[in-house]
Design a protein around this nucleic acid. Structure first.
Lengths: 235, 235
DNA sequence: CTATAAAGATAGTTATACTATTATAAATAG
DNA sequence: CTATTTATAATAGTATAACTATCTTTATAG
């Protein structure tokens, strides 16, 4: 159950369960105490150690469990990362759908989409065991590793990227609403998402690769830039 | 020594040695037979196995040498990848400089830059032990792993991304020549490079994330798309 | 002919990514 | 209220990766 805020500021409770492709896990982690601890703490530890130095032993220690127990939920850390990233894609899709509901102007919809890309990171709307801000930072810094692997075609054939594709499709529909003759709706949709993540990362670590300042609220600047790009392209 | 072709079709030989940050290696691999074999075959094996499954043992077997010998050249596979990616950045910078020489129109320069990004992959202009096409494919599929690590700030402080930054700076200068008031010259430069690589990858592996067709010469289509984006943004 | 450096050969260490087995505690079905 | 299933914990073990160390051989420079 997710607690969400609607546009007129009332808090409301909606029965929403974000679910991801069943092939990603051996056992649904959201259904058990241990499963939720795995999710919660893997988000923390992926952030702390990064994908390469993260392992199931460290995670087991963190939650006072064992490697073997974690392996009953996830085959390996690659699929755990993919699970988290899929969860994020579903979450962003949900945010987009929810926040563009009843909005008629497609340009405004696109602004809302861009806002969702840069600040899906706002906690407090989701579940206790998933910190959206930490999850977003995993997506920013480790996300592409989920699809830049030798196994990408195999993973793709199992539907492990459907959530990403659905999100992109949703965005490209809005792009076509703005400009039905636009030649690159999917590419632009993908780019808005990837560019948002990239430039938040670059601002923090490689600032000379961007024009976004290193300061605290660079999310706002990235948002402004993406709106500027979109406006120019869909003029 | 690089053998290059000039614009009027004559083949000429120029004394150019692409060199990268000395901190990336323990011993200059371009200076010895074994070093060059390491470079050549690491390019082949990174392509074959991907970064994760590549290791120095496999590489040693391939070149009939030993792990220990390879460790005398590179501290670890991360720095070997970073070496290769740096070599690529330097190569693209060289291509840009060489091919935009004496061109006055900055819009034409930008077209040449975009062409360099999508088809730096053309072999035959470089060195025997470096296949640009294979190297480009490493950059496309593994490149970002060179800067999406927990060690990025440390690597950055050692200057391991200077070649990337210099390339971006070179491109952003041209962008500002086209439009001196453009607000995001560095971000656009970075984006042209990253988007070129991304969409060549997506066309091949996740085609629904792009509008580039899966067919053979998608490089041409990516080039067209990037020119279209650039034209719109710098109108 | 000798000194030095580069590379090869071999062995060993520590950590990771698992798999397998058994024991125990908690939930639930009859 | 016991029997049975299920989940998890505890423990141990294997294969491979990522190195490090040392010693020997080969090539080359003076």
């Amino acid at each position: 159950m997710l607690s969400v805020n609607n546009s007129i500021g009332n808090s409301m409770s909606v029965e929403i369960k974000i679910s991801v492709n069943k092939g990603l896990y051996l056992k649904e982690p959201q259904d058990t105490e241990l499963g939720r601890k795995i999710i919660k703490n893997s988000i923390i530890l992926f952030n702390k150690f990064g994908f390469e130095s993260f392992n199931f032993k460290k995670l087991a220690q963190e939650i006072n469990s064992t490697e073997a127990s974690i392996y009953r939920y996830f085959e390996n850390k690659h699929l755990l990362l993919l699970y988290l990233v899929n969860w994020y894609w579903e979450w962003v899709s949900y945010l987009i759908t929810f926040n563009t509901m009843n909005i008629l102007n497609p340009r405004i919809k696109l602004q809302i989409i861009i806002h969702s890309f840069v600040s899906a990171a706002t906690d407090g709307n989701g579940l206790e065991y998933i910190s959206e801000s930490k999850l977003h930072y995993i997506v920013i810094s480790e996300g592409i590793k989920a699809y830049h692997t030798k196994g990408v075609d195999k993973d793709n054939s199992k539907g492990f990227f459907l959530s990403y594709k659905n999100m992109v499709n949703k965005v490209s529909q809005v792009i076509l609403e703005v400009d039905p003759n636009f030649r690159y709706p999917n590419a632009l949709a993908t780019n808005l998402y990837e560019t948002a993540n990239n430039h938040i990362y670059f601002a923090k670590h490689l600032p000379r690769l961007t024009d976004i300042s290193k300061e605290a609220n660079n999310a706002g600047e990235v948002e402004k830039m993406l709106n500027f790009f979109t406006d120019k392209l869909l003029a």
